[in-house]
Amino acid sequence: MRSLIGAKQQKWLLLAPALTVLALISFVPFVQTLWLSFSDSEISALPTVVSFIGLENYIYALTDPDFIDSLGRTLYFTFVSVGAEVILGVAVALLLNQQFKGRTLMRALIILPWAIPTIVNAVTWRLIYNPEYGALNSLLMQLGIIGEYQSWLGNPDVAMNMVILADVWKNFPLVAYVALAALQTVPMDMLNAARLEGANAWRRFFKITLPWIIGPLLVIIVLRSVEAFRVFDIIYVMTRGGPANQTKTASFYVYQEYFSYLRSGSGSSYAIIVALISIILIFGYYKAAKRQNGSL
């Protein structure tokens, strides 16, 4: 209802620095990628003639079983790791919301995995999984769970899940912190009333606590999904897409299309397809955030 005199001109002046940077580094390159995706462009030191080839790249991409497989793997990675992070995160939040000695210390402790750089995390787990001298092998052997050392990242059947474990370790604290903050806003009166009505802990969680924290959880779930969907760094360090391409995610696929095969045209169409799926997720974020606070 209030609008200040001269607010309009000021608005654009205030926005100018952010807008300039984002326009040059994000908006313009996106449009250029979009244009490339309709062309037969290739990365080359020599000047080449680039021509418009319509939807050809897209038709090729969507009929390329390798690319479709990589999309499927990316969705698997996203779904399983975010799912595990949410279940673990909420469980940890419930645990840390109890009263016990050393609660503050425990709450501080779980920030550790999140604070460690992604690349260090990936390197650490790669060393832990090492087939010859890895800590996981040694531990499981000493506990008598496995009879001989395994090649965790070399086995196509389990490699992806091992990468997911590393990702979950790094990212569950974020979900736990959000869930914990939301848990602290659950009105005690409501829980006590339910307790007096005879609802057991299980019922209280599903009927009162979970509906109360679902808003913030949804926001973080979608944010994490967007992030997980573009996973690259952890794959690059841990497996480089192997074994047998079993951990080759979409971002890694596009990276190789660009920088190994130098096909910028078709690579761009892959990138745009990945972007479109991200947009669906982003729209999900918009909905979740809107539901959460109405303002955006």
């Binding site: 967007v226 971002s251 972007a275 991200s278 982003i282 974020y285």
Partner: peptide, 10 residues
Amino acid sequence: MMPPITYILP
């Protein structure tokens, strides 16, 4: 939120 691969080449 967009994957960086959509910006990287340009």
